[in-house]
Amino acid sequence: MSNGSTKTTTKSTFHFAAGLGSGVLSAVLLQPIDLLKTRVQQSGSHSLSAAIADIRAAPHIIQALWRGAVPSALRTGFGSAIYFTSLNAIRQNAARISFLALPSTTAPIATGPGATSTSRHSSSLPKLSNTGNLFAGAVARSFAGFILMPLTVLKVRYESTFYKYSSLVGAARDIAGREGLRGFFAGFGATAIRDAPYAGLYVLFYEQSKRRLSSLYGASTSPDATPQSRSDKKMGVSRAASINFASAMVSGVVCSIISNPFDAAKTRIQLYPDTYRNMVHATRRMVSEEGFRALWDGLALRMSRKALSSALAWTVYEELIRRAEVTWSSGGGGKARSNL
Rank of each mutant, 00 (worst) to 15 (best):
G137L: 14
G137V: 07
G137N: 10
A138D: 03
A138R: 01
V139L: 15
A140R: 02
A140C: 09
A140G: 06
A140F: 08
A140K: 08
A140L: 07
S142N: 04
F143Y: 12
F143D: 00
A144H: 07
I147R: 02
I147Y: 00
L148P: 00
L148T: 15
L148A: 08
M149D: 13
M149P: 06
M149W: 14
P150H: 03
L151C: 02
L151Y: 09
T152D: 02
T152F: 06
T152L: 10
T152Q: 09
V153W: 11
L154I: 10
K155R: 11
K155Y: 07
V156E: 11
V156M: 13
V156H: 11
R157T: 01
R157K: 12
R157F: 02
R157M: 03
Y158L: 12
E159I: 01
E159S: 00
T161A: 03
T161S: 09
T161Y: 00
F162V: 11
Y163C: 04
Y163P: 05
Y165N: 10
Y165C: 07
L168W: 04
V169H: 11
A172L: 08
R173C: 10
D174M: 02
D174E: 10
D174Q: 08
I175S: 11
A176C: 01
A176L: 13
A176P: 01
G177Q: 13
G177K: 10
G177C: 03
R178C: 04
R178A: 09
E179R: 14
E179A: 15
E179W: 12
G180L: 08
L181H: 08
R182E: 07
F184A: 04
F185I: 04
A186Q: 13
A186I: 00
G187R: 09
G187Y: 08
G187S: 10
G187L: 09
F188K: 00
G189S: 12
G189Y: 02
G189W: 03
G189V: 07
A190V: 02
T191N: 14
T191R: 03
A192D: 07
A192L: 15
I193H: 05
I193M: 15
R194L: 14
R194T: 08
R194D: 07
D195P: 05
A196E: 02
A196S: 13
Y198H: 14
Y198D: 06
